[in-house]
Nucleic acid binder design. Structure first.
Length: 938
RNA sequence: GGGCGCGUAGCUCAGUGGGAGAGCACUACGUUGACAUCGUAGGGGUCGCUGGUUCAAUCCCAGCCGCGCCCACCA
């Protein structure tokens, strides 16, 4: 006999280990392949609610398809997560007071990270197992392979892709303005920058014209009337970043801006630093400045601003790097005096600089050198103010870029980096979604995807880190580049070029982590080595992920998959929501509102957590999680457990000889019909990725149909003496319960597997066959008849409570009307009606007895002769209200049917439906009138 | 500025061109041998507002109001 409750803490571990030991997570059989690759969690990661949701959904799909006989591969693994991992290990080194990364050097550091990875990385794998994830762990992969060695297949995949793309001209080295993270001292991609609105200032400064020159400054209103006229010896510019003034290359105004027309082409002075060394910069025209914003004049700092960079490129304006890699003002190079003279000479000679980027020149004056950029800002402002050149300062909300991991202000910086031609790579990736080869579910995410892909920027793929795939590029003398999969290959290329062996130096940088993640759908399957798995499992079947990594990951996989495999990585992408807290707030470490899935698993079991996530996973919505909800679904597991316990007590067990299509008792025909319906629903909803509807359907069937009604209806049978009926009901009950367990298994794998075993079903539930739609099990008549009985019972219960009939009191039932079937039905369901509606006896009559409570049930009256307990007036009121309701319904329908246009234009079926509804209400109304008349008779 | 989405019962949310739903919460009653992690019954909503399309609108369309998210270079 089953215990009273499911001991999930004990069972989950045992069951999971048994599944895994039996190899049940591996793809087997000859069925159609079904493949999902896990979004590889960071190797540093711990299971958070987002993982729990994401992996629950994948597990539901995997288990369901596995039961359907598909050859399921759920491919697991972890991501090496460049910055995150390097951070974790560096922090650990600091805590242990070990020498810093830079002190021990690259090789030793990378060794340490590998050691960390093997000793304490990948905790999340065990956490996924606790969730019940049925991944094929024997195939677990890491984005850097076992040890990052050149002959490791995962490494080869990355190297081959890089080299191929380089040779195809899709990867190139370039000096460009990139997002620089001064904390981690590396470039990051656009996506890793978070723009946050912060309180800032906008300063307005005077840039004096060279040589004290003056001009007539005239402002006009919309109608051309002069509103201001004065003589100026300066041009007014506005900036939010005064510290970058030292790198200005020009001041730009719009070509149509008449105010500045007199001084375009002239020089003005950057009013920072010792006067004798100040640079003069030209006033130029460009379409970029908006004449209606600020003064209409913009300082152009091509080396530290993305807009200015574009202007500077167009206008061949020099760009200067002002800061070092930590975001402090440069302290390198010769003193400013000498260098600034050079710059001035270049400019004053009137000749075009050879290159418009000048990083050899450090323009920072002595008193600013080595100063943090924000300190420098203060000083610049103070100095200009002291000189009387500050016009005003405004408080202003400004969008400031922050590194998403470092949380420090990103500095646009001109550096040498590797770029992928994302625009080119995106073309087939866009086309694949346009043609429908890859579909997003819900569909609206396709817009988001398109919007980003169609405006995609070059992808900076190099990172100035040590942990990651080192870029397979080697440099020879005079900056010749040899890109090859291995050093040996690079040496060979160099030898061919130079005619002799030359010592090469490998690029110091590593690749963006997402570069290797982008290969995940096929690198995990063995590519680039020959691989049967790749043949079988690529393209994957579906990708399940959250919308926040559509750009980071999904888009990259599309690009990389189409590039390397010439085939889409997956035909479907299911995008689920984010997990948010009870208040709808995104869970985050900084807010401290995160709920730990492992704690919930400890408290309520993995099944309860999984089920909660599924019921909340409606398309296009975030998933709210609260402990109360999880507790509620733990109760569901308990309910089911007790239903099984009851079944067991009544000898309900699988009967292999039982053919559900041959059931003879209405109640059994009905529950088999309902089970079949439920299976159809769950299957249909899963096919459409409607996890909430699928889990809701199984919940309702298990609780509200099987437990609430079937088991109650079966009780009289089990307690009766009809052995044949008992046997059939046991078998039918077991059949329906078996269906419930099967349908529930993808959602609640543990409790379902445990009950499956305890109830004596064969083999493991995880490998049981998913219920197929079966027309032979449908029985509309049985369903109608049971609904009739259920409605009658409910109606009687309702009236009894309303009349305050004591629970223990049993009353007779006198049934009137209802046609020929009624008598038969009353007889068939005699036991059940008496038991569930608390009836002493049931009889049929031509009219209700006097002084009875009368319940109108369709075209019949069920009367309870309990004159002594009823309040006559209250009963009259009750019936009158019902009559009014019926009359109102009829009136509404009559209005419709009386509308010629409705009868004319509405579909015949709709009109017919209304007529039939009217008939129903009319019959009910007649009975209500009869009941009221009977009451009046008293 | 562009894009996506949301406003339905006290709360959280499903849902559909033709009869307003669930869970939780709440109220009453209940320990009838599966289950009090439970049972039975009940109250509760002008489906954001205004127009339009339609025989018919909570649902489709437009506008408005309120809210959320993503992307974006206004110095």
């Amino acid at each position: 006999m089953l215990e009273k409750n499911f001991d999930f803490a004990e069972a989950e571990k045992r069951i999971y280990e048994a599944w895994e030991a039996a190899g049940l997570f591996r793809p087997t059989g000859e069925g159609e392949p079904f493949t999902i690759v896990i979004p590889p969690p960071n190797v540093t990661g711990n299971l958070h609610m987002g993982h729990a949701l994401n992996n629950t959904l994948q597990d539901v799909l995997s288990r369901w398809r596995r039961m359907q006989g598909r050859r399921v591969l759920w491919q697991p693994g972890t991501d090496h997560a460049g910055i995150a991992t390097q951070m974790v290990v560096e922090r650990q080194m600091m805590e242990r007071q070990e020498p810093k990364r830079t002190e021990i050097g690259r090789e030793k550091f990378v060794e340490k990270v590998w050691k960390w990875r093997h000793e304490s990385g990948g905790q999340i794998i065990n956490q996924l197992k606790r969730l019940g994830a049925s991944c094929d762990w024997s195939r677990e992969r890491f984005t850097m392979g076992e040890n990052g060695a050149a002959d490791d297949q995962m490494v080869k995949a990355v190297m081959k892709t890089f080299v191929d793309m380089y040779n195809d001209g899709l990867i190139y080295r370039d000096k460009r303005l990139v997002n620089w993270d001064p904390k981690f001292e590396t470039a990051i991609s656009d996506l890793e920058v978070e723009n946050i609105e912060v309180d800032g200032h906008m300063w307005h400064f005077k840039y004096p014209l060279a040589g004290g020159e003056t001009y007539e400054y005239v402002e006009k209103d919309e109608d051309g009337n002069v509103t201001l006229r004065e003589t100026r010896d300066y041009i007014s510019i506005a900036t939010t970043r005064p510290e970058t003034m030292l790198g200005d290359g020009a001041v730009a105004v719009h070509p149509s801006d008449d105010r500045y027309a007199p001084i375009v082409g002239k020089l003005c002075e950057i009013p920072v630093g010792p006067k004798e060394h100040r640079r003069l910069i030209p006033i130029i025209t460009d379409d970029y400045p908006d004449p209606n914003f600020g003064s209409g004049a913009v300082k152009i700092t091509g080396g530290h601003d993305f807009n200015d960079y574009q202007v500077a490129k167009r206008g061949r304006i020099p760009m200067y790097r002002l800061m070092d890699w930590r975001g402090a003002m440069r302290a390198d190079g010769a003193p400013y005096a000498e260098e600034a003279e050079k710059a001035r000479e270049i400019r004053e000679a009137g000749g075009e600089p050879e290159a418009n980027y000048v990083d050899t020149i450090n323009l920072v004056p002595d008193e600013y050198r080595g100063m943090d950029r924000f300190e420098a800002r203060k000083k610049v402002v103070a100095d200009i103010d002291a000189e009387g050149l500050m016009i005003k300062v405004e408080d202003k909300k400004i969008m400031q870029p922050f590194g998403d991991r470092s949380n420090v202000v990103i500095e646009p910086m001109i550096t040498d980096q590797w770029f992928a031609n994302a625009e080119e790579l995106a073309k087939p990736a866009i086309a694949a979604v346009e043609t429908g080869d890859t579909k997003f579910i819900p569909e609206n995410w396709e817009k988001t995807y398109f919007q980003w892909m169609r405006n995609i920027q070059p992808w900076c793929i190099s990172r100035q880190l040590w942990w990651g795939h080192r870029i397979p590029a080697w440099y020879g003398p005079s900056k010749d580049i040899f890109v090859a999969e291995t050093e040996a290959d690079a040496n060979r290329l160099a030898e061919e070029k130079y005619g002799e062996a030359i010592e090469l130096k490998q690029d110091e940088d590593v690749l963006d982590t997402w570069f290797s993640s982008g290969l995940w759908p096929f690198s995990t399957l063995g590519w680039p080595e020959p691989s049967a798995e790749l043949e079988t499992h690529y393209p994957n079947s579906v990708l399940v992920t959250a919308f926040d990594i559509i750009f980071f990951w999904v888009a990259r996989m599309m690009m990389m998959g189409l590039y390397t495999q010439k085939e889409i990585p997956f035909p479907e992408v299911y995008i689920h929501g984010l997990v948010v807290d009870e208040d709808g707030q995104k869970m985050s470490k900084s807010k401290g509102n995160g709920v730990d899935p492992l704690e919930l698993i400890d408290a309520f079991g993995a099944d309860a957590l999984r089920f909660t996530l599924c019921t909340q996973a409606a398309q296009g919505r975030n998933v709210r999680i609260s402990e109360a909800r999880v507790e509620g679904y733990r109760n569901f597991a308990t309910k089911l457990w007790n239903a099984a316990r009851f079944a067991q007590m009544n000898d309900v067990k699988p009967d292999p000889a039982f053919d559900p299509a041959s059931a003879t008792l209405t109640v059994n025909q009905w529950i088999i019909h309902e089970a079949n319906e439920c299976a159809n629903t769950v299957t249909r909803e899963l096919e459409a990725y409607r996890f909430n509807d699928a889990s809701g359907a199984i919940y309702r069937f298990a609780w509200n149909v099987y437990c609430d009604w079937f088991l109650e209806l079966a009780k009289p049978v089990f307690q009766g003496s009809n052995e044949a009926a008992k046997a059939e009901t046991r078998a039918a009950g077991a059949f329906a319960l078996g269906t419930i367990l099967k349908l529930l298994h993808p959602f609640m794998p543990f409790v379902s597997e445990e009950l499956w075993d305890k109830l004596g079903f064969d083999d493991a539930l995880i490998t049981a066959a998913w219920p197929q739609a079966d027309k032979g099990l449908e029985n509309a008549d049985a369903a109608e008849e049971m609904q009739w009985a259920i409605d009658l019972i409910t109606a009687i219960r309702s009236v009894r409570q309303e009349m305050n009939v004591p629970v223990a009191a049993k009353t007779p039932l006198v049934f009137t009307g209802g046609g020929d079937d009624a008598g038969k039905r009353l007889q068939i369901h005699d036991d059940v009606l008496k038991r569930l509606a608390r009836l002493s006896e049931i009889s049929v009559a031509d009219a209700s007895p006097k002084g009875a409570v009368q319940i109108v049930h369709g075209d019949a009256i069920a009367a309870l002769p309990i004159a002594d307990v009823i309040d006559l007036d209250a009963e009259k009121d009750r019936l009158a209200k019902e009559r009014a309701k019926a009359e109102k319904e009829i009136a509404v329908i009559d209005k419709k049917l009386g509308n010629e246009k409705f009868v004319e234009r509405a579909p015949a079926a709709v009109v017919e439906e209304q007529r039939s509804r009217r008939d129903g209400y009319v019959a009910e109304l007649e009975k209500l009138k009869a009941a009221i008349a009977r009451l009046e008779d008293l």
